[in-house]
């Protein structure tokens, strides 16, 4: 489904040329749960932007669902992002002074055809992330964890195959972070392809597979024998709190 062949990305040109990605190749099958790891400056954000069709590689080939993303123009890439990729950012990136419901509906504005049941779909997506009682709240009235859940609902609204999350728990406390990871775990179980970009080992432990970048190259690509189950951990935590 996702196939990268010797992807390169160089910023600038000539003497000031800075290679960030130096030949990255991997495949991700539909339904995988992958953590993309690396210290800052290793090029993992650049790689995420390329996988998310926000940026184009300067070398190599990127196939997304059979389409050669490198040959598509800006409009076609926009359409691809809209239909196939749901983004979740560290900074949430919700529209201020706009209700959760409207925030979730945002990608549909750019969808063709516009679904008749846009609002019901947004309500469903918000219910799926446990915010059915916060639909008309604005970002300022929600906690960080709740804001990130609105962002996940937004990522789900066009029913994309891939969820691409960039440090989704980076701005959250451990409890809220675990709740977000529980949602990803459930989405994965429901068949979504999840790619989480993180520098946090603990977060990576929840994925089935970990790809580690170093200096623009893949240092390690391994399966996780026993991924942590965030859903179970949340339940246990709730159980503990109830007991106390």
């Amino acid at each position: 489904m996702i196939e990268l062949k010797t992807i390169e990305k160089t910023y600038g040109s000539g003497d000031t040329a800075t290679p960030v990605l130096k030949g990255i190749s991997f495949r991700i099958q539909a339904g995988e749960y992958v953590a993309l790891m690396g210290a800052s400056g290793t090029g993992k954000s650049t790689l995420m932007n390329i996988v998310g069709c926000l940026d184009k590689p300067t070398g190599g080939q990127y196939q997304l669902d059979g389409a050669d993303a490198g040959t598509l123009d800006d409009n076609a890439l926009s359409h691809l992002r809209n239909q196939k990729i749901g983004f979740v950012f560290q900074q949430f990136h919700l529209l201020e002074r706009t209700t959760a419901l409207k925030n979730v509906m945002l990608p549909l504005i750019y969808s063709e055809p516009y679904p008749e049941d846009a609002e019901q779909r947004a309500e469903k997506a918000l219910t799926a992330v446990g915010l059915n009682d916060r639909m008309y709240y604005r970002p300022g009235e929600l906690s960080g964890g709740q804001q990130q859940r609105v962002a996940i609902a937004r990522a789900l609204i066009t029913n994309p195959q891939i969820i691409l999350a960039d440090e989704p728990t980076g701005n959250l406390d451990s409890k809220s972070g675990l709740e977000i990871l529980a949602i990803f775990k459930r989405l994965h179980r429901d068949g979504h392809t999840i790619i989480i970009v993180t520098h946090n080992e603990e977060v990576a432990e929840h994925a089935d597979r970990v790809i580690v970048l170093k200096d623009g190259k893949i240092e390690q690509d391994r399966r996780v024998a026993q991924p942590r189950d965030a859903e179970k951990e949340v339940d246990e935590r709730i159980g503990r709190e109830d007991a106390e």
Binding site: D74, S78, H79, R81, Q91, H93, L95, P107, I109, Y110
Partner: peptide
């Protein structure tokens, strides 16, 4: 950031 987000979720330059 709003513009970046709109682009990420599928807005074209024309949009």
């Amino acid at each position: 950031k709003e513009i970046g987000l709109r682009r990420a979720v599928g807005a074209t330059r024309g949009d």
